[in-house]
Simulated assay, not measured.
Amino acid sequence: MLKELNPSDRDYYDPKIEILENGYTPYYDEILGMVQEDLPEHVSNEVFSILNLYRAIHSSYSELDDVEKSDFKETDIRFKGFDMNEEYDHYSFAKYVVEGYLIYQDLQNKSGYNTHRNTLYKYGQMLQVWNELDKKTNLSKDEIKRILSQ
């Protein structure tokens, strides 16, 4: 795919494609040397849980009437992200699935996803309340407030 996007770099990509197509394992390091360690599964699971929570909040908020919606600021219900320095794995994976892979494009945030402060504790508290509500996807105004108040 990169070869097609960058035709001027064919000489770079062709040997790498040949290595992979032919299974030349002694040369895999040439290609995979730039690949990071695997993302821990618990990180991706946490990110998916948090994004699913925010999806439930967003969809429930959209079903509220205008009077009920007036109890919230739009920033209250927006997925804000993670601290890029302290929660980098969470930050980078969330950014990828929201913007790159587009699974959660409905949660895109024009302000970015770097909160500049730790968020995992708060999100954990929010998830705990959502779990108590059996991970409902159709939340009432009061349930949304209860989750966000954590």
Rank of each mutant, 00 (worst) to 15 (best):
N109H: 04
V98G: 00
P7Q: 08
L107I: 01
D11A: 05
V129A: 05
V98Q: 01
L32H: 11
L133E: 00
V129Q: 05
K16V: 06
S8T: 13
M1G: 10
V43Q: 14
D38S: 12
K122T: 14
L127G: 01
S44L: 10
K69I: 07
T137Q: 13
L53W: 07
F79E: 06
D83I: 10
Y27L: 08
D134R: 08
I144C: 00
N45F: 14
H90N: 13
N22T: 12
E41K: 10
Q150C: 11
V43C: 13
Y61Q: 14
I103G: 14
L39C: 00
I17M: 15
Y13L: 06
Y27M: 09
Y54V: 00
E41Y: 05
Y91N: 00
E41P: 01
L20R: 05
R10G: 11
Y13N: 09
N45Q: 15
N118D: 09
H42Y: 13
F48H: 12
D89L: 10
Y27C: 07
Q108R: 14
Y101T: 14
T25P: 00
T119D: 02
N131M: 11
Y91D: 00
S92H: 03
I50Q: 00
S60W: 07
Q36R: 13
E68T: 04
I17T: 14
D89A: 14
N45G: 06
N45R: 15
F48G: 00
D29T: 12
E37G: 06
Q108W: 08
Q150E: 12
N114S: 08
E74L: 15
L148T: 02
